[in-house]
Design a binder for these strands. Sequence first.
DNA 1: CTATCATACGTTATATCATAACAGTCAAGG
DNA 2: CCTTGACTGTTATGATATAACGTATGATAG
Lengths: 164, 164
Amino acid sequence: MSEHIHGAFCCPDHSGQQGARTILSQAEARATRMGLRLTPVRLRTLELLIAAHGALGAYDVLEKLAAEGYGTQPPVAYRALNWLVEHGFAHRIRRLNAFTACAHPSDDHAAAFLICTGCDSVTEAPAGAVTAALTQAADSAGFSMDRATIEAVGQCRACQGANA
Amino acid sequence: MSEHIHGAFCCPDHSGQQGARTILSQAEARATRMGLRLTPVRLRTLELLIAAHGALGAYDVLEKLAAEGYGTQPPVAYRALNWLVEHGFAHRIRRLNAFTACAHPSDDHAAAFLICTGCDSVTEAPAGAVTAALTQAADSAGFSMDRATIEAVGQCRACQGANA
DNA sequence: CTATCATACGTTATATCATAACAGTCAAGG
DNA sequence: CCTTGACTGTTATGATATAACGTATGATAG
């Protein structure tokens, strides 16, 4: 599989350098505030995810890290990625076996992802209402929900136009 | 990994032989009605999923199929499983890299899955409201949703009690 | 200062999940 | 009969992920 299949530029909401800097500085601030060690590999991994404007597979990340002098073996990438996910700096997109930077690293939110089949972009959408509905459905079944994976597959605004 | 890790019996809603027969006959009826060829491998695969009362990995299914004289190689299982999913007889549980029989094969519904971390059971929950909320969230982003993956992780009623 | 301990990083090796590509079988229709 | 299309099976390989172990570094207690 080629380098960053998931990461095109035709879709909105990937706010450009401005947004990237914001996300990164918010993340660094939060790490400091909470005593989390955002080490060089972890930081660099986060930067890569942000720069990708989409989702990256672990091996895509590994390839870049290796090229920059970090470790060359899968656990290097998986550890950094899993740490970022555990601490809310990134999300795992299960449908793509890939990871994406969290667009709102400041709050401990529930997120839904909009995966475009046209341009492979991944957008994080506010999922308060969705999560509420899911919690409700779970409750009805006597199920106590800890967390959820919510991923929509379809076409972003730009790709809908492109196909017309 | 051992045989059918995902498939315990401590949780409800896996209605026992009665339910299994119902699901199976509904599925066969629908296949006939719609001109779908529910061949021996496919039928047997569906039976295995139903009997598992949870989710089975493709290789779990393959092992059983092989033991019964069907093909011994991965594509045999993946083809049957993918066909069942495509035609609404089963669902893929992305978080578990596994498959489960559809509990309501008669209607073309949207489903959410409740995955118990205590007993590895997987329960299919009605997801009308959740899907509606997600569609709404997608619309707000100008995203046209085709389908969705909705999976909740937590504890089923029985396992909540067990941990008290 | 230095012994100890926890955390993180890196490695080798292996496990697990999934599909591409091609060959044989068999029933339905010309 | 013989072609065609759907299905099943195979070999081979690709893609994703983790276990287990050794080393380095930095904080802290003695």
